[in-house]
C-alpha cells in the first residue's frame, strides 16, 4: 500500500525491505523457485494439460499434430521444463508442510532442507525421464 502513505498527509510508514537488501541464503532461493515453478505450472503446465485433452477429444488428426509439436526439440524443452517445475514445486511444497508444523526453522536444518528440495526436484525430473525414455 505504498501509495496510501503519502496521499493522506500522514507520516510515511516504513516499508518492508526487498530482495536486494538481504544476504542471500538457501531459504530465499527455495522460496523464489517455489513461486516461479508454481506460477510456471499454473500457466504453462495447466495450459499444456488442456491442449493435450482438447486435441485428444478432437480426434486422431488433431492429436497427431499435438504429438508432432510435443516431440520436437522445443516441445521436449517445454515438457522437461514443466516436469522439473512440477517436481521442484512438489518438493518445496512438502517443505512448506514441514515448516507449517513448526519444524525445520533452525538455521542448519533449514539450509539443509532448502538445498535438498532443489536437488531432489532435479533428481526426480531426471529419474522420471529416464524411466520413460529408457524402458
Amino acid at each position: 500500500m505504498a501509495q496510501t502513505n503519502s496521499t493522506h498527509g500522514r507520516k510515511a510508514r516504513p516499508l518492508s525491505p526487498h530482495l536486494q537488501i538481504w544476504r542471500w541464503g538457501p531459504a530465499m532461493f527455495t522460496s523464489i523457485m517455489h513461486r516461479v515453478s508454481g506460477n510456471g505450472l499454473a500457466v504453462v503446465g495447466l495450459g499444456l494439460l488442456l491442449c493435450w485433452l482438447g486435441t485428444l477429444v478432437s480426434g486422431a488428426d488433431a492429436y497427431a499434430k499435438f504429438q508432432a509439436q510435443a516431440s520436437s526439440w522445443y516441445g521436449m524443452v517445454v515438457l522437461v521444463g514443466v516436469s522439473w517445475a512440477f517436481f521442484n514445486h512438489l518438493c518445496s511444497g512438502v517443505r512448506h508442510f514441514i515448516l507449517d508444523i513448526g519444524a525445520g526453522f533452525e538455521v542448519k536444518s533449514n539450509n539443509t532442507f532448502s538445498i535438498l528440495t532443489n536437488v531432489l526436484g532435479v533428481v526426480f525430473t531426471i529419474a522420471f525421464w529416464a524411466i520413460i525414455l529408457l524402458r
Binding site: 504429438q67 512440477f86 511444497g93 512438502v94 508442510f97 520413460i132
Partner: peptide, 24 residues
C-alpha cells in the same frame, strides 16, 4: 488443495509412466 494435488498428481505421474505408449 495441496494435499489433494500431492495424491492426484502422484497417481497421474505414475499412470503416465506405466502407460505402454502415448498413442491416440
Amino acid at each position: 488443495t495441496a494435499v489433494g494435488n500431492l495424491v492426484l498428481t502422484a497417481w497421474f505421474a505414475v499412470s503416465l509412466v506405466l502407460l505402454p505408449d502415448y498413442s491416440y
